[in-house]
Design a protein around this nucleic acid. Structure first.
Lengths: 185, 185
DNA sequence: TAAGTCATGTAATCGGTTACATGATTGC
DNA sequence: GCAATCATGTAACCGATTACATGACTTA
């Protein structure tokens, strides 16, 4: 059900095509919701059928035609009603954590290597978030227009999560190293 | 595919029934992987068929019989091979974040209320993790037996994540309050 | 000429949830 | 008498991924 609303959120401020929506899901919204074109196109059709969005076809020269969608008043109404709704606690389902659960069975150097690799990936993601953050420059969350507030707040959330994940990785690495020195040489 | 290995991880140190596994997925492993009985029983059957676990039936008085499973040598081998494998960066797919994305469109008091509610849920989860942590008492991660290391490390990860999530919530609440005072009264 | 971008879809499959089904024992 | 605990499953459905499909234009 959330995909509908994720799409509506993006169409609330802009008129977009399925292709452009797909790209947005890879970038801006991409750090807490993801969807591929195969999901997006059918959902757009359903949203239009339900009258929550309206589409128009734009013919282009030298390029395939496209359909641009914008939110309808009913769509906006439904979106706002949903946003105010309480959310269930979402569970982070992380395959990597299942592996960490097994680190006690593993040789310490193997565990340390796997940990270093994962930490590196998260550091890269953190860096990419920082790059987006730089785009906000010295924008003040107290006075910035409402259109950007959500993007700013969620980005800060993403940064906070990645920071503490990386910090935890460092801590685990230290523990593994010291265990290696104390216990099994 | 990860469910297989999550089950194997739990059967690596203990001999458990499907029922007991279901309970473990609600508690110990529950903060980074979840599975219900409807998934677990068929998977146990498949694991046994593939020779990665072995089961035996235990007749009980006044209670239904149960099947206890333990990992096989092949199962352990496969598990360890998988654990050393690099993990893809997992995406946190969070419905609540989609809502925060829309906070700019919402009245500030509505947004603040939704935020407070979510924060409260995470504070409760953090408290439950702290309670589990207390069970480790003053156990030293440098010298604790390997059987507990994974549980300890993942728990620390869960605590770190919840802490920084709650901290982010506080920050957002402050921003929303101040915007309320400065902008729309 | 090969890869990449723009643009939109269908089909098969899979992992997971919801709902359904059964049945005995124990404690309030 | 009712709810909870122990114990194991099946069936239907749904959301999401993988693979497949098409086609023109642009850039290296």
């Amino acid at each position: 059900m959330s995909l509908r609303f994720a799409i509506l959120s993006l169409l609330a401020n802009d008129e977009l095509s399925g292709y452009e929506l797909t790209r947005r899901f890879e970038h801006s919204v991409g750090y807490f919701w993801r969807a591929r074109s195969q999901q997006i196109y059918p959902e757009l059709a359903r949203l239009e059928e339900d009258g929550l969005i309206r589409g128009r076809t734009v013919e282009q020269v030298g390029r395939p035609h496209k359909r641009l969608f914008r939110i309808s008043p009913e769509g906006r109404e439904r979106l706002l009603a949903w946003v105010a709704t309480p959310s269930p606690l979402t569970l982070v389902k992380d395959e990597f954590m299942v592996k960490v659960w097994c680190y006690g069975m593993l040789g310490l150097s193997t565990a340390a290597a796997a940990m270093a690799e994962q930490r590196h990936q998260h550091e890269e993601r953190l860096a990419s978030y920082r790059a987006i953050e730089a785009g906000f420059e010295r924008a003040d969350p107290l006075t910035m227009p409402g259109d950007y507030l959500g993007a700013y707040l969620t980005l800060q959330g993403g940064i906070a999560m990645e920071q503490s994940f990386v910090a935890w990785c460092e801590r685990v690495q230290t523990i593994l190293e010291r265990r290696g020195r104390v216990g099994q040489p």
